[in-house]
Amino acid sequence: MDRDRVFSSINSPPYFDGKDYSQWKVMMMAFLQSQEDKLWSIIEKGWIEPTKKETETSNPIPKPRGEWTVAEQSDHKCDTKARYSLFAALSDKERKRITNCPTAKASWELLQTTHEGNKKVKAQKLQSLVLEFEEMTMREDESVDDFHSRLINVTNQCHGLGDPILEHRIVKKFLHALPPSFEAKQIAIEEAQDLDSYSLDELVGNMKTFESKRRKGQKEKSIALSTLKKEEDPSDFNLEEFAVLTKYESETQSDHEEENVALVATTQNESSNESDDDEHSEEVATNKFQQLYKASKIMIGKTEELKDQLASCEKEKTGIAEKLQSCKKKWEFERNALVSQVETLQENLNAQIRLVNSLTSEKISLEKSFRDSQEKFPK
């Protein structure tokens, strides 16, 4: 059963079930370093079983535990604690990988090779992540928090593979990846701030504030437009409200700015003519208002239709881009897996070749010894 104990206790190692290895690796290193000074160093250098020589010319043999020095006992205890910490942090599936590893260093390296690959695979993964970082953009319908999370996820993986991306590069990437609706804020920050020293947290905070104000403004405009769209009794239609709403609409719909201004001007002219010319009846004025109101409704309907078409196209474009990105990641993953398999097979083949050469050499040596024995036997 999955467990999430990352923040449950400082004495509990972060849980790992095979997902997001780069993040777990950083957290596990911090955990080991927080326990004892030697826990992480014993993983880095590795523990070696103490040995001794019975004579100066004899080969080393394992030293009995009763003869271990205090330092040797301490190193062994640290290695055992480090191994146990790894066992406690892993899921059943991941724990089985390191069951037969004799030391904490061997366990750590096996997990690292399994989830990061060898140097060549790591280099390929890093190249793919850097490319993904460079191509990242924020969608119009995406929040600042969501984009920030995606960006940090990629940079954390780069850091886990040993190639961290500097903060000023992340800040500049964040600004350049913003959608057109953030252009004014982007320009203001670039002119006012030194991007080489500007922190990512401060940038994200400013962007979230701007996003909040922008959404509030969009909501107010939406309420104004929805009020204009309501079916109203023409006899109750208020001239001043119509003029204000039409003017407000012109601010939100740049493609129809001239038409809206014309409508407002026409309405104002009709109003002034009514006040100056007593011969115009109220019925004629009402008819004029009705015509203007219907024309505005038609214009709004066309605008909304174009908005829907644009949104549909944007959605389709986003879907295609996401599908393409997913396929690229899938292909890259399969390619890396095949490369890793080929390298493993090559290593196994080389090991077999070395074994054959060793056996051949041993065979030649035995044959020579046998011939020598045959020559000595008659004598």
Rank of each mutant, 00 (worst) to 15 (best):
D20I: 04
T55D: 03
K77E: 09
K208S: 10
K363P: 07
E251Y: 06
N238G: 03
E94P: 02
Q290L: 11
L310K: 13
I61N: 00
L111V: 03
S22Q: 11
K368L: 15
Q127R: 12
D236A: 09
E190Q: 05
D163T: 02
K53W: 04
Q374H: 08
I170R: 13
V26G: 11
R83Y: 03
I187C: 00
V342H: 08
C158S: 08
V339D: 10
E375S: 09
S9G: 04
T55E: 03
Q33K: 12
S281R: 15
D20N: 05
R169A: 05
Q73C: 06
R95Q: 07
A82G: 02
L263M: 06
I98T: 02
R5H: 13
T209R: 14
R97A: 15
Y15D: 10
V264L: 01
S41C: 03
N100R: 07
E44I: 03
I152V: 11
A82Q: 01
Q218C: 04
S361M: 04
Q193C: 14
T286C: 14
K328I: 02
Q23T: 09
F182G: 00
S143V: 12
I10F: 08
D201Q: 02
D92C: 10
P164V: 01
L263W: 00
L263I: 04
E322T: 06
S326P: 01
E305L: 12
